[in-house]
Amino acid sequence: MCIGVPMQIVEIYEDGISGVVEAGNTKKHCFFMVIENPKVGDYVLVHAGTAIAKIDEQEAKENIELIDQCLLGTTDGSK
């Protein structure tokens, strides 16, 4: 139920609130009403046919850095 799938926006319809997302060879209708400024090419997390978050390439890198910090034991509960 809460399974979110990372997909890429390939088309935004004229209404600006819906369009098409793609992952692998699968294309799906998607609503964009709970993310700001959806753009073709953005990666989004799709849940129940709705994009609920953008996935950021830069933040994916930072996420790996965070994991490295965990390994070094330098996270201490800061945001």
Binding site: E59, N63, D76, G77
Partner: peptide
């Protein structure tokens, strides 16, 4: 790490999303 530092906070591991 929080336990070691005797803290209890809400933290975010899933920063990419």
């Amino acid at each position: 790490n929080q336990i070691e530092h005797k803290t209890s906070k809400a933290e975010n591991e899933y920063k990419r999303v």
